[in-house]
Design a protein around this nucleic acid. Structure first.
Lengths: 238, 238
DNA sequence: AAGTGGTCTAGACCACTGT
DNA sequence: CAGTGGTCTAGACCACTTT
């Protein structure tokens, strides 16, 4: 998926910084080239370098201190509660590596709970079910327990969910119309706890998410995250 | 209520646009002055006007179309799952009774952690600290551990926080400018656990919230909720 | 043709931190 | 003191849309 048009200079600078963070060359807390360094190295004006670093700061990748310098930010895993983002993109945008392991992919008769969340569309029929573990640099970041309306994604069982996330696939085949989520702190049951590699009594952050497409419920997902390594970040200005 | 320092020009422009939106003069979808309009009206350079409008676009307030113009954004899609809501209003909106118990109200030298969140404004000076327990029909719903910048709310220690919530008071004396929050699942320490009346190993949902006012950090709050009785709900359409 | 936003430059002054 | 980020200017070229 190459970008046809050349990126603006400030985007190229941002990408350069992110590459160095992704590759591990610049670790958390490390000093990042100053605006003047970028001016000299890339032959751009200072405003362009400033914009690149400023935007990376705003998105939490960098920390800047006037009179001191710019440094790689100290991020714990952070998600945006209001955006429906692809977890793989989210991990990559932090400069880290995403990997997915498919645990289960099947067709099943939904439980009472799942039927309630997925609605009448799945009343007496079976639904698709996937269980995927998402890793950020080899540490488990999310266990994704997802139930999908087969009417809206009939080819779900044929997708390779170790290269494409369920979210990516669903966004492609079913236009997202509406989303609802509930966030809770829980002590997950043993199977989930094992997949999350949680210590005993370590809590998890659970996001229950229902998505609508074509006026119907498309998917119900239980997204479990280790409490010690995951944060939902949000905020707004003004 | 006074922001002493003069805001940067681009912040003044943002404020000007926001005032017009807040007052209702510019409604959703209405055209906003172009960059050149702002250049002429406020005698600033185009880059300054550009930055103001660009940042308002990124925070979702404005929508811009190259070659066409800038318009007031459509807020119905921009649901805030973590709204800055007053917990008392929230409880009452569910038809329940809200009660607050003030545990602590003091001035103290902030810990390293608090200083980090509250920023340099509190570097070597003391800050205000309040610890309030919020009940929904006699069940604990939130333990609010809040640290306040004394420069922005000098009368904080004189407020009766069993009749007015800290949030209500702060909204009154310091205009809210920016908010950031982090949501996590945690096992709280003993003192908080006792106030929350949690069973052993019962997790809590922790919201860390930093609010800005007058370009300064106004308040840092740790909002603890019992995992078994509290949910964050959100969602949006389209 | 006129207007708009998107980007970019080559300077500038300031306040601040480090040495 | 030199270095840093924060801000600002007065131009510029481009692609695009509307008239």
């Amino acid at each position: 998926m190459a970008c046809a048009k050349p990126l603006p200079l400030y985007e190229q600078l941002k990408e350069h910084v992110l590459q160095n963070i992704r590759s591990g060359a610049w670790r958390t807390g490390a000093r990042v080239p100053s605006e003047y360094d970028l001016v000299r190295e890339f032959k751009v004006s200072r405003m362009t370098a400033n914009r690149a670093l400023r935007e990376l700061m705003r998105s939490g990748v960098l920390a800047r201190v006037a009179g001191v310098g710019t440094f790689v930010g100290d991020f714990k895993a952070a998600g945006h509660p209001l955006q429906i983002r692809n977890i793989a993109d989210e991990i990559r945008s932090r400069g880290h590596r995403h990997r997915a392991r498919l645990v289960t992919l099947e067709r099943l008769i939904p439980s009472q709970t799942v039927r309630g969340r997925l609605g009448s569309a799945a009343a007496h029929t079976s639904v698709f079910h996937s269980l995927v573990v998402h890793f950020e640099n080899d540490a488990v970041l999310q266990v994704e327990d997802r139930y999908v309306n087969p009417l809206l994604a009939p080819d779900y069982l044929g997708v390779d969910f170790e290269t494409v996330t369920p979210h990516e696939y669903l966004m492609e085949v079913a236009p997202l119309q509406r989303v609802e989520h509930v966030v809770r702190a829980v002590l997950p049951e043993a199977p989930i706890r094992a997949l999350l590699k949680l210590r005993a009594h370590e809590p998890a952050l659970l996001i229950e998410r229902v998505t609508w497409s074509c006026e119907a419920r498309a998917s119900f997902a239980l997204l479990y995250h280790p409490g010690s390594r995951f944060e939902l970040r949000g905020g707004f200005a003004v």
